[in-house]
Every structure is written in C-alpha cells, then in structure tokens.
Design a binder for these strands. Structure first.
Length: 445
DNA sequence: CTCCCAATAT
DNA sequence: AATATTGGGA
C-alpha cells in the first residue's frame, strides 16, 4: 500500500552481529530500493559513520548494551545522523535510553517487514530540515542535489516530468489521471535481488530458455506485486547476459585452441620442465584472481580453466605491462599474428620471465588489443600451455599462483587491485562486494 | 486485443 | 548498470 511513495536509493548503513540476520536485513532493504552498505563488525560500522557520515542517509545499528561504543557514537553524532537502533531488548528502559541518547528510532527484534521499509521517514525529516536551512546557504543545497537521493529531489523530478509532458500534449485529463496515480500507485523500481532472481531463474529453467516467455515465467514464479513487464524487462537482460557469456566462452575457446597450436611445436615442453616458480608467489595476491569457482570476474579479472590450459584475463593496457619480471616483446609481429589468426584485432605476444638472470619462457601473454577510439582494450590473456597431467582443482590453484607471479600485473596494478578492494577507501564499492558475498548465490557474471 | 521482443528512455 | 517504457509486429 505504500508502494510508490518510497524514495529510491537512500543510502543505508546496516550492522548486526548475527551475520545471518544481517543478510536478511540487507536483502529486505535492497528490495525496498535502499542502497545498502553492510557492516559485519560494530567497529567497522562506527568507523564508517565517524569518517563517512555524509555518505549515508540512515544507519541501522544493532546494539545490546548501552555502555558500548555504539552508544558513545550515538551521543556524538546522533544529532547529525539518522541512527536507528535495533535490539532484542524490548524493555521500556532500553528504548528510552537509546532514544534519549539520540537514536531516531528503536526497533525491537524481530523487526517487522513494514517497519524496515518505512525507515526512510527519518531521512525525510532530516532532509526537510536541511532544505529549510539551505534556502540561504548554498553548500548544503549543493550537497543535497549531489546525492540525489533525498526525497526532495525525488518529488521534484516527478513534478518536472509532469509539467513537461503536460506542456507537450496539452491535455490535462490524462495528466490528471497520471498525477493522481503518481502520488499513490506509481510503480517503483523492482530490484531483482536474491530470492526474486532465483525464482526467476528457476522458472526460466523450467520452461527452457527458448520457451520461457514473460507471461509463463510470471505465472510460474507466482510472486505477488510483480508485473509481466517487470519480468519481460528482466528476461531481456537475462538473455543478453547469456549471450554475452556465450560470446565470451567462444572467444576463450578459440584463443586456447590457437594457443595450443602454437605451443605444440618446438619449445612447448620447455614451459614447465622442472620449473618451480611458486616460491616467488605472493599468495595474498591470488585471492584477487582466483575464486573457489575457478572464475573470478570482478573488475575485469577473470580466470577460467579448460582441461589443459589456464587462461587469465586481465585488463591492462599492454604498454603498462612492464613488470620487473617480464620482458615484453613489442617487436614481434610474426608471433603476434600466429596467435591472432582468428581475431580481428592486433595481438601481441608478450612473454618471458627471468629468474636468476636466466631467461625462461614461462608464459605467453596474449593480448588481442582491439583499439577503439576510446582506447578501450579487450582483455589480455595469459596461458599456461599443456600441463603434463590433467589439472585437478588444487593443482589448478597452484598453477594459478604461478601465473600471477609471473606477473601479469606489475606492482602498480596489484596495488590498484588492492585499493579497489579496500572497503574503507571506497565504501560503496566495498559494500557491493560484501553484499554479494552475503546474499547472492555466486557464480560467473 | 494480448503478448513478445527489441529498442530506447530514465 | 539496471530497470522501465514504448512501439511495431505476430
């Protein structure tokens, strides 16, 4: 009954000690279109609020005792920040305690769905206060516009649309209807999160990808409050993703076969003869590249495994690949072409690896560089050709470690990757990753 | 008219 | 990037 009134995109930070409960909170909040930042530790939540208070509209913090760090935090910033306390302590005393200390709300566990949905009311209040203050002050107004997640902007936008279309078609009657509907039942953006998407996939699976059409999927999903159009839209995206995945697979396939051809000639056996490069690995870095699934498609790094080859995609421009280990052969068009028969772009054979001043060709770095006007490049590939024995999961990981070292990325990129994963430096990004960990069934994108 | 799909808009 | 809306065609 409140659908349509909830402002989208309010940024909510949420912490609960119980990871499972936290996950369910996150999921629900996402369903309500909130932008959720998940904190597994109280400490983390507090740190984020202390340092990035402006990045959140609302904080939902679980708290049990009124003597902890959260309580102190609340007394410090409670007046500037919408902090909602959740607790299983249902005593009046506790409620009063927290509210007095600055909490803008206190929700007793278990929390009702609807209460969670309605948390935005607090942000609204704050917003309105800010706006009235900002009539004169410019900075605050700017900030509010920038975040674009305040209700004021939300309504503003609708008002503009209304005005515009009224101007265009000159008809008031239709507009009046729309106007009425806007303020009551305007469709809100559906978030295909967790459960919803799972059911969708199940339905598609049930009919088969060619036979699955929006209406059938909708019926099979049997979920209230979603429309055929919702499903149709999602299906369109779903199909596109599949297609993209297929294309990607095909590409990898063709690359690995051409690689194999190359290495089947002389020198191929030298690649792994008596070589142990694992000591030079930094195992920590591997987590950037290797996921348990054997496929990591985050931030452009992906790894996939065929029976004999390990293929690693990465994203750097080839001219950046001046690692301390590798020597890059930019001047060998012939070899490049050998890799490239099936590719439209130019490719480079980049390889080699030096240890104790003795060169050993360990890896060939294959990079189909598709120059576009925007200087965007296709991923590069590293290939370990022809392992002598079938690759098991664990040896796969070991081999993968080898690869990283050989350093597809120089230290520069490694640092970048680490930075990219640094939650504190990049709260939004970090939260997205955590959210995935917590509430999504993983798998290749 | 309903539905599907692809393109386009937000 | 994700979702909604639109418009033509089956």
């Amino acid at each position: 009954m409140f659908s349509g009134k909830i402002p989208e995109g309010l940024r909510v930070l949420v912490f609960d000690e119980d990871p499972q409960y936290l996950s369910s909170l996150v999921e629900h909040l996402q369903e309500f279109q909130y932008k959720v930042t998940r904190c597994n530790e109280e400490e983390e939540a507090i740190y984020l609020l202390r340092t990035h208070m402006n990045k959140f509209d609302i904080a939902i913090l679980e708290a049990q005792n009124p003597y902890g760090a959260t309580f102190r935090l609340l007394s410090e910033i409670g007046s500037e920040m919408n902090i909602i306390i959740i607790s299983k302590d249902d005593s009046v005393k506790s409620v009063i305690n927290w509210i007095r200390n600055g909490a803008c709300d206190y929700l007793i566990k278990p929390i009702r769905h609807e209460d969670l949905r309605l948390i935005f009311k607090h942000a609204v209040k704050k917003m309105e206060v800010r706006r009235s203050v900002a009539v004169v002050g410019e900075a605050e107004d700017k900030a509010a516009k920038q975040s674009s997640s305040y209700v004021g902007d939300f309504t503003m936008r609708n008002a503009n649309e209304r005005k515009r279309s009224m101007f265009l078609d000159g008809q008031a009657s239709k507009e009046d209807q729309n106007h009425y509907r806007d303020s009551t039942t305007k469709k809100r953006r559906l978030a295909w999160v967790g459960n919803l998407h799972t059911k969708f996939v199940e339905a598609v699976d049930y009919f088969g990808i060619d036979k699955a059409v929006p209406k059938k999927i909708l019926e099979r999903m049997n979920i209230e409050n979603i429309t055929r159009d919702n499903v149709a839209s999602h299906l369109q995206k779903f199909r596109m993703n599949l297609k993209k995945q297929n294309d990607q697979n095909k590409k990898n396939q063709s690359l690995t076969t051409s690689q194999r051809r190359m290495y089947s000639g002389e020198g191929s056996s030298e690649f792994h003869r008596g070589m142990n490069v694992q000591q030079i690995l930094n195992p920590n870095l591997m987590t950037q590249f290797i996921s348990p699934l054997g496929h990591h498609d985050d931030d452009g790094v992906s790894v996939s495994l065929s029976e004999r080859n390990l293929v690693m995609n990465h994203q750097y421009h080839h001219t950046h690949q001046t690692s301390q280990f590798g020597c890059i052969d930019h001047n060998n068009p012939e070899e490049s072409l050998a890799y490239n028969e099936e590719e439209a772009g130019v490719s480079k054979l980049i390889c080699s690896f030096t240890q104790d001043s003795e060169e050993m060709s360990l890896l060939h770095l294959y990079e189909p560089v598709m120059e576009t006007m925007m200087h965007v490049h296709e991923p590069s590939m590293v290939d370990i050709p022809s392992f002598p024995s079938p690759v098991t999961q664990s040896s796969f990981l070991n081999q993968a470690k080898t690869i990283t070292m050989v350093d597809v990325c120089g230290q520069q990129q490694i640092n970048n990757l680490i930075d990219g994963n640094n939650f504190l430096d990049n709260p939004r990004l970090g939260s997205a990753k955590r959210d995935q960990d917590g509430s999504r069934s993983g798998g290749p994108a």
